[in-house]
């Protein structure tokens, strides 16, 4: 399991993540990995025992992991949410916006370029709720 190159929480979880199919039987597991075709909502009954959910991006063009992440955060998951796989620098700001707080690209990214990428957007148009940013419409109306 790759350590995250980018971490936005105090420390990274260390427990090895098990596949979603194995997670149901392994009642001691505290870390799980979900693939793009798997339903993140299957984890909702178990959120309180989870310290790590790894969401894989086998191909950067497959955006299902963005929905998985947001669904988990919307449900109140507060543990580590880690994006892994084919992650390019241009995805970083969006990964943060849907609630990832750990990012482990398969190929390490240039730190300076990553720094720029995380700061791409001065403000944001949407309330994703999970990233703590106030959308532009809220700023416009003093909400």
């Amino acid at each position: 399991m790759a350590d995250p190159q980018f971490l936005f929480r105090d420390e990274a979880a260390s427990a090895p993540a098990v596949a979603l199919s194995a997670f149901g039987e392994d009642t001691n597991a505290t870390a799980v990995r979900i693939e793009p075709g798997e339903d993140a909502r299957a984890l909702l009954p178990h959120l309180d025992r989870l310290s790590l959910v790894e969401v894989t991006f086998p191909a950067f063009t497959d955006g299902r992991g963005f929905s998985s992440a947001r669904i988990l955060r919307e449900a109140g998951y507060t543990g580590e949410l880690r994006a892994t796989g084919d992650i390019g620098v241009d995805m970083l700001s969006h990964l943060r916006r849907v609630g990832f707080d750990a990012i482990a690209p398969a190929t390490p990214l240039d730190p300076a370029e990553a720094e720029t990428a995380f700061n791409t957007w001065p403000e944001v148009y949407q309330a994703t709720v999970v990233d703590g940013r106030k959308p532009i419409w809220a700023l416009r109306h003093g909400l």
């Binding site: 950067f60 063009t61 497959d62 955006g63 963005f66 929905s67 947001r70 700001s93 969006h94 990964l95 916006r97 849907v98 957007w121 944001v124 148009y125 949407q126 994703t128 532009i136 419409w137």
Partner: peptide
């Protein structure tokens, strides 16, 4: 405005 750079829907 909602659809511009919507982070969840950029790799549909």
């Amino acid at each position: 405005q909602w659809s511009s750079f919507h982070p969840e829907f950029l790799a549909l």
